[in-house]
Simulated assay, not measured.
Amino acid sequence: MTGLNTIGRSLLSDDPDVLDGSSAGKRHASSGARWLKAVRSIQTGLVLAWFVMAVVALWALFPQWFTSYSPTVGVARQQLRAPSAEHWLGTDALGRDLLSRIIYGAGNSLSGAFVAVGVGLLVGTTLGIVAGSARGRIDGAIMRGVDVLLSIPQLLLSLSIVILLGFGIVNAAIAVGVTSIASFARLARSEVVRVRTSDYVEAAFGSGGTFGRVLWRHILPNSLTSVIAFAALQLGWAILTISTLGFLGYGAPPPTPEWGLLIAEGRNYIARAWWLTTVPGIVVILTVLSANRISQSFGKAKA
């Protein structure tokens, strides 16, 4: 009986149909496991962050796609209307559609944030690269200036620069960008110093490479990844700071739609029309959190 069972199992294991079915089942399970792993790897928060930033970017580039109302001209007898089918987010004290002002305000807020990040990225990274590459007295002089900038509160420095330059979204963006120069410079210098002391850079110098060639081909490409990730983080900070300046009255002048200015204009009517401050505030918070979440993903990808 034992011999028959052994022969039966042997014949069953050699059956092509059985083998094919077993292999197909394993492939099926393997593909199912890969699909389940791919689904689990999707980060819902990151997807939502990209979605929010995509919507805000479309608002800034093509505001006329999303609203037919003017952001600056009000409608008579439509003041302080609550959200409705006609005005989805209500109207302000002058009868202007709030959704329209938020959508058109995205262009001013985002463009100002990009200018601010661009100023900090360009000037700060250049100073950091020069300091990390030259070392010695040049490094010391640049970093002492960076320490001075870091010792001044950023909002206070931004207000001082705006007062000197004059009010306006561009001047506010430049002021915010100047305050971020020190952070970019310090990060860029630390990355350049780290990469410059690595073995492959020393080998490149030992094989006869000039300083400029080694800097361009080896040091910069391996130093700027962290700087780019930091720039994405600074984008959210710039939006928040520019909105703060607009709220204080140092940003875009009325009736220009700008997120911080919208919050400031609605605070006098918060008891009667809560949506005038609440909705723009939520938009600012979601945009800043989305930019921060995307920057975190860049940092994890680098790690």
Rank of each mutant, 00 (worst) to 15 (best):
V123W: 12
G118P: 00
V123G: 04
G112C: 06
V119K: 07
D92K: 01
V117H: 14
G95N: 10
L122I: 03
R101Q: 02
G118Y: 01
S111V: 11
V123S: 12
P83R: 09
L121M: 13
G118E: 01
F114D: 08
A85C: 10
G112P: 02
V123R: 15
L98S: 00
G90I: 00
V123A: 03
L99V: 14
A113M: 04
N108G: 05
A82F: 15
R96S: 14
Q79G: 07
G118R: 05
S100L: 09
R81F: 15
L80K: 10
L89G: 03
T126E: 14
D92Q: 04
T91C: 11
S100P: 00
R81K: 14
R96Y: 15
R96H: 15
V117S: 02
S111C: 01
V115E: 04
N108P: 07
G90M: 03
T126H: 12
W88S: 09
A113V: 02
G95H: 07
G124T: 00
G105R: 03
A85I: 15
E86G: 12
G120F: 09
G105E: 07
Q79E: 08
P83L: 08
N108Q: 09
L99N: 10
I102L: 07
W88K: 10
L121W: 11
G124Q: 01
A116P: 10
G107V: 02
I103F: 01
R101Y: 08
A106Q: 00
V123P: 09
A82T: 13
H87Y: 14
R96I: 15
D92V: 03
W88R: 12
G128H: 04
G107N: 11
G120H: 12
L122N: 15
N108I: 04
L121R: 14
L121E: 12
G112F: 08
S111D: 10
A116Y: 05
A106G: 06
L98G: 07
D92E: 03
S109Y: 02
V115H: 08
W88P: 02
H87F: 10
L94D: 13
G128F: 10
S100M: 07
L98D: 03
L122C: 07
S84Y: 14
S109L: 00
A93L: 14
G112S: 07
A116G: 08
E86W: 06
L80W: 05
A113P: 01
I102Y: 08
G90F: 11
I102S: 06
H87T: 10
S100H: 00
R96T: 13
A93Y: 14
L89P: 09
L122Y: 13
D97V: 02
L94K: 14
Q79A: 15
I102G: 04
A106F: 00
G128M: 05
L80E: 01
G112A: 10
A113I: 01
T126P: 12
L110C: 06
T126F: 06
L98T: 09
L121H: 11
H87G: 05
V119Q: 07
A82S: 10
G128Q: 09
I102F: 06
S109P: 06
A106S: 00
G95K: 09
F114S: 02
V117E: 08
G118N: 02
L99S: 05
E86H: 13
T125S: 06
G120W: 05
V115F: 06
G118F: 04
T126W: 05
